[in-house]
Design a protein around this nucleic acid. Structure first.
Lengths: 128, 128
DNA sequence: ACCGTACTACGATGGGTATCGTACGAAGGT
DNA sequence: ACCTTCGTACGATACCCATCGTAGTACGGT
């Protein structure tokens, strides 16, 4: 006997038109999650959770993936013991054309910029 | 006598290269703030805080404007008793090209979509 | 000098959330 | 069967944050 229900192993995802912009932006406004999304976009493939080398524990990782899934940014599917994470690029692009790519480009620019101590460009502002 | 320092009435803004993507995304991930930013972009002008008819109290409004300012999304300047808020479009566009416009377009799409009950497009997902 | 308008500061509060540790469940290999 | 790997669930914690009300400051007009 299998005692009872052994666990459906099914993950709830928002439908395409249940995806809300604010939830997406919130999901992307965290450093760890942004890193995950960037990696997913770079690899252009579904990656397991353990693929990522994140500066947080496994529980926290689970939490972040859940936020990404529930906001509609990634789709998670079980593949044996591992769970594959794929960017919902089609849905995101359909709903918010260009948003993902622009954020990705911005993330690249942001991290590149922050890696440099001072490129001489003091920018401006704080003047008037 | 003016007792002491009457108050500099100067507001701290992040320098252009202190603006962080995550902070910007976080600032934009709130419905009230997104609404403010959309209005600012639509009017293409600096608007006073009281211009906005927001569903929150004045204290909360102040809070939201501060988040927008401290994240580098808006620039605030005093103009007599009122405070003018202007989108930092130049800085944002220089740092994250296209980000603001894409988010703005996404916000438009999102609110338009949410205004409609059901357009027939049941989307997909939730199938496997 | 007075008042009104515009915004701020402070304190409080409730809810969210990022983090952890530990214990558990599910799938696969030996 | 057993163990390992992968991920989840739950509880705890500390922090952040959106919200409010009230009291206060700054500026401009009368």
């Amino acid at each position: 006997m299998s005692t009872a229900a052994p666990g459906p192993r099914v993950l709830a995802h928002p439908d395409r038109d249940e995806i809300r912009l604010e939830a997406v932006l919130h999901a992307l406004s965290d450093a760890v999650r942004l890193r995950i999304v960037r990696e997913l976009a770079d690899r252009e493939a579904a990656l397991s959770c353990s693929y990522f080398d994140l500066p947080v524990t496994k529980s926290t990782t689970t939490h972040h993936f859940r936020v990404l899934r529930e906001s509609g940014v990634v789709r998670q599917t079980y593949q044996g013991t591992t769970k594959l994470n794929a960017l919902r690029r089609d849905d995101l692009d359909a709903l918010f054309p260009g948003l993902l790519d622009t954020v990705l480009a911005a993330a690249l620019a942001d991290s590149a910029r922050r890696a440099l101590p001072g490129t001489g460009a003091v920018t401006s502002s704080a003047s008037g």
